[in-house]
């Protein structure tokens, strides 16, 4: 049984003119446990909305999302929050670190609403991404690359079954982007988490064995 199954998923937004604009229309999509898949697509094609629907941040207009046997689309908002906290890690393009917290605290926040806080594991993750000597630094005192690595550590902190990455290297130069995506892949692999990345960066997409054109996945 796949870790993630998406069926007949639809999401539309109301445009300023008052008309409904369909952004996501995915008849079928699957992701196996532990697999790593990259979806290729240019800006404005609904990639982020698709990931937000999978993460339960957005509620689908219709269709099904089943994660690890649990139907996300059938859950209440708090149920989706719980499922996200326990099963999903999310790496954002802008990292979305909290600036009032240290690197370690940001990682610990990633586990706070899920299976429980494990500071030793958070420290281990930061050491794993090469920030063992930067745990007490706030994001403002870290380079962009270092911030991205904190975001990676935070995404894996709740020991998720699925990691979603939305343009995870969008703010990095080519060299650092390659290093970063390699790190994301390695760390997901080490922690037995499936990885679903969306990106428009061809260089990044080339690193994945499994890629798909989001335009083929999404009919909208």
């Amino acid at each position: 049984m796949p870790l993630l199954t998406v069926a007949n998923l639809e999401k539309a937004y109301c445009s300023p003119e008052g008309t409904q604009t369909r952004v996501v229309d995915v008849p079928h999509f699957e992701l196996e446990a532990g697999s790593q898949t990259a979806l290729k697509g240019s800006s404005g094609t609904g990639k982020t909305t698709f990931l937000n629907l999978i993460a339960g941040i957005l509620h689908a207009d219709s269709g099904q999302i089943v994660i690890d046997g649990e139907e996300m689309t059938g859950l209440s908002e708090s149920g989706r929050d719980s499922l996200r906290a326990s099963h999903i890690g999310y790496i954002f393009q802008t990292f979305n670190l909290l600036h009032g917290y240290t690197a370690l605290e940001n990682v610990v926040l990633g586990m706070m609403f899920g299976k429980g806080v494990d500071v030793e594991f958070a420290q281990h993750l930061l050491e794993r991404v090469g920030l063992g000597d930067r745990m007490g630094y706030p994001p403002s005192q870290l380079s962009v690359g270092q911030q991205q690595r904190v975001a990676v550590a935070r995404a894996i902190a709740n020991r998720p079954r699925l990691v979603l990455a939305d343009e995870p290297t969008g703010n990095l130069d080519y060299h650092r982007a390659n290093e970063a995506i390699a790190l994301v892949r390695a760390i997901c692999h080490e922690n037995n988490a499936a990885l679903l990345t969306v990106s428009h960066d061809v260089g990044i997409l080339e690193q994945f064995e499994e890629t798909a054109d989001f335009a083929h996945v999404n009919r909208a």
Binding site: E77, D81, Y90, L98
Partner: peptide, 16 residues
């Protein structure tokens, strides 16, 4: 607002 959105994206519920 962004801080709350980040906390929510990490699994925090509205009531949290």
């Amino acid at each position: 607002r962004r801080e709350f959105a980040i906390l929510r994206s990490l699994g925090a519920r509205r009531k949290t």
